[in-house]
Design a protein around this nucleic acid. Sequence first.
DNA 1: TTAAAAAATGTAAGCGCTTACATTTTAGAG
DNA 2: CTCTAAAATGTAAGCGCTTACATTTTTTAA
Lengths: 343, 343
Amino acid sequence: MTNNTKDNGVPTLADVALHANVSTATVSRCLNSPERVGEKTRQRVMKAVQDLGYAPNFGAQALAARQTNTIAAVIPTMENAVFARGLQAFQEELGRHGKTLLVASSAYDADLEEQQVRALAARGADGILLIGYDRAPDIYAFLAKQQIPTLIAWSFNPEETRPSVGFNNRAAMTELARQVIGHGHKHIACVSAPTASNDRARERVEGIRDAMSQVGQSSSDLVVVETPYGIETGERAFRQVMTESPRTTAVMCVNDVLAVGALRAAREMGIKVPDDVSVTGFDDIEIATLAEPPLTTVHVPHREMGRCAADMLIHILRGDQDGHTLELATEIRVRQSLGPAPN
Amino acid sequence: MTNNTKDNGVPTLADVALHANVSTATVSRCLNSPERVGEKTRQRVMKAVQDLGYAPNFGAQALAARQTNTIAAVIPTMENAVFARGLQAFQEELGRHGKTLLVASSAYDADLEEQQVRALAARGADGILLIGYDRAPDIYAFLAKQQIPTLIAWSFNPEETRPSVGFNNRAAMTELARQVIGHGHKHIACVSAPTASNDRARERVEGIRDAMSQVGQSSSDLVVVETPYGIETGERAFRQVMTESPRTTAVMCVNDVLAVGALRAAREMGIKVPDDVSVTGFDDIEIATLAEPPLTTVHVPHREMGRCAADMLIHILRGDQDGHTLELATEIRVRQSLGPAPN
DNA sequence: TTAAAAAATGTAAGCGCTTACATTTTAGAG
DNA sequence: CTCTAAAATGTAAGCGCTTACATTTTTTAA
């Protein structure tokens, strides 16, 4: 072995310094701002780094430099393709800027989310990405107190002031609902995720109401069934809708997964889509095109959102106060699951 | 504000100590091993922690305690539901043990993976999860030098000695291939992911060959097309297979996504599945049941694998050397995409 | 009541790095 | 060749926490 000061395998800055016959300061500079070091010295130091297989100690670095180059994200679940995709892009962009991603998931549970946020803050995250606006005020207070820059994604609400990157869930759903209404549907039902602490779902439901109001229909006519995320739950919700409100001719789901469940339930019940009932989704993930029939849905640029989120967060960390909030466009994708209302 | 020693918002251990009128050691003990502190003192300290909104500084903690309670995973991509699911379970279990997950993705690129591993090691990961055995020896050497416990997932190969949790890709595929052969198929083709640095794909292909050999068929008869991951690429690969080897009656894909692509290509080409050609997948993710026709595939317990991986890694970190490697069972799921060979 | 053991708490030495400031070396100008 | 400014390097003081060891307090037992 080499002449490490202390003989536990992992070499330290001091070992490198010794090896290269310079001070620790010089080694540190070689690694962090090489232009401030003489050419020959640098080469000598770099060789020592190589020889010893030196890698900086993270804790020490974080402590001394007061930052971890680590960014955290708390998402509902990675099993939702929507978040997996966004997170993937987020991580890629982060990586490009030398940042690493810390991940936790809340399983759509507000308390769990709070725990996770605290845990990630404790892990020294320089910044944090959160999904949607809805959460207890003390989380925001905590983050403020800890001085951890925070960015909201997946939601964009002109009335909110927090930095965010996302799309207008309400407006997007309104547009889709208009299309549905345009197909002659008068009895619309909505299968939603729980709206209590999920502004995205809530806004989407409201979006449908907006569209109904716009055509002079009472928005309280909208039948809404709330259910947790999943194909099976979507199936059950669809059955419930059709049982309790048999006149329904269009079932608008707040995401594609629930919609696929609805499609499946319809098939089992012998209900033809779109001849008897139309079904719509939201997100435009892969299964939307794979479903039978292919799903009419709202296309959301998940990857772009993830990428932008990373960029924005990095800007915020740097102190560039520009572009504090960003609205992304969505787009209606009309496919076979939407058809004219039966008469 | 409170009487922080130094007046930059974030309180330190010393501030808490001051506030509670104890030493920093006592505060530290309150937080890390409360049973070693008197009841009254603890309450006083905890109150101070609350009042000040204290959260430990990560870098300092990591430096002093020589561990970060952080575990890293490098996966090919989160957009593959297979990994998203496993990673989700992995993270959940980690969380249960107070560990946090650091994530990076390699996009199935060996060089990128190496970079990521180094980056995560530099971020102070206490342990690391890697997918599959295949990678440059210097990555393993680096990890060993850094003394970072490493666990391999998604592969279990009796001939390998590294700690791993996974399933026998080869044996599982052999079993599926036997079923295919049992349906009378003599001209089998395989659509594979690139096998160069992916032992999982390679083993699956070999698994088919094994089954062919077992029935006395020359394994070199197997037509193999390699293509990157994706539905579209699966489509193209299927076209290529059917063009170059039109006698093919069964196309075995090394994962469900490629298989769904194959199914789609078949439909576009007017080839009936399974009447003209049978198609199989691997993984049994959601789209396998959603596909038309539903896909015959190998069910892999992704969630369980993620959970076990977390448990094993934690054990390894603790120094419990038990259960160094774990084989999980897979199961063939026969669905409509597999039928008897046309005569 | 008192000595010994056990429990609670305090003291202070690092952990390995960054960086302000001090010092030395080098380069350039006269 | 000398003087000065700039570049390169070194010195050493923390960063905020954990923990071995020392000290004090409480409990237990005789």
